[in-house]
């Protein structure tokens, strides 16, 4: 992973592009069969810092990210990007899921496929794919079938695939939930490297340690409601809401 420092220019988010942030959620609700999974959340998420969404199981973290990303349509309320084309042109936002979804192709082809969908030429795709594979330490495995890689390698490849798109915003849904500590450390340093190229990170996690390491600000959800929003240091030292105090008290060593 030493290559993370010497990143190629191709991985940097183009600064001449219209910035899509801030992201504004306006009384956003999502309701399935009468159950409010997301209950009227209004918040403005700024560029730059790393935003972590925390909350117990069933709080609505994954649903909220899918609503922001456009995979789910809100029942009411709106997701407003500063650049209104953000939801249409997917290369400016990307998402990595809890379980990496690998196409039945080589590691390299998994990346060039994603780039091809967003209209990048074959030649440019190959160059960018090689860059990101090197950046996540998978150059040696470029020609291996993605589905026979280890789970940790697959998740690194999933991050590389998202990274190659040069997204302004990257959503991560518990990216290390199934990984061992070493693989988790790799993923965390890749996330930091992606942020260093100018990408806004919005992620969920169940690991409070990870939230402490990566988080700049915390959005705390409970029963579909946004209960608390604080800078990470104050959230962990002095949580403001009763729900967050309870949640933090349940932390395992």
């Amino acid at each position: 992973m030493q290559s993370l420092n010497g990143l190629n220019y191709r991985l940097n988010v183009a600064t001449d592009r219209l910035l899509m942030l801030p992201l504004i959620l306006d009384r956003l609700s999502f309701c399935v069969k009468g159950q409010m999974l997301i209950d009227s959340i209004s918040v403005q998420i700024e560029a730059g810092s790393r935003t972590l969404i925390l909350g117990p199981n069933g709080a609505g973290k994954s649903v909220l990210m899918r609503l922001c990303h456009g995979l789910l349509q809100p029942s009411s309320g709106q997701v407003i990007w500063k650049n209104k084309h953000a939801g249409v042109f997917r290369q400016i936002q990307a998402m990595v899921f809890q379980r990496p979804v690998m196409l039945r192709r080589s590691a390299l082809a998994n990346i060039t496929y994603a780039l091809g969908l967003s209209g990048v030429s074959a030649e440019e795709s190959r160059l960018r794919a090689e860059d990101v594979l090197e950046a996540v330490g998978l150059s040696q495995k470029a020609q291996h079938s993605a589905r026979v890689l280890s789970l940790g390698e697959q998740q690194r490849l999933a991050l590389a695939r998202a990274w190659a798109l040069g997204p302004e915003v990257l959503f991560l849904d518990e990216p290390t939930a199934h990984l061992d500590p070493n693989a988790t450390r790799d993923i965390e340093s890749i996330i930091a490297a992606i942020q260093a190229t100018g990408t806004k990170i919005i992620m969920t996690t169940h690991s409070l340690g990870q939230a402490r390491r990566l988080g700049d600000e915390i959005l705390f959800l409970h029963n579909g409601k946004l209960v608390e929003r604080s800078p990470a240091h104050s959230f962990f030292s002095a949580p403001a809401s009763a729900e967050a105090i309870n949640y933090l008290r349940g932390e395992l060593p």
Partner: peptide
């Protein structure tokens, strides 16, 4: 297995169909 990931990448139904046949 693929749907969310491919939708996230902005796939159209037509592109998804050929991806599935190939994969």
């Amino acid at each position: 297995e693929y749907e969310e990931q491919l939708r996230s990448l902005g796939v159209t139904n037509f592109q998804a169909l050929w991806t599935l046949i190939w994969d």
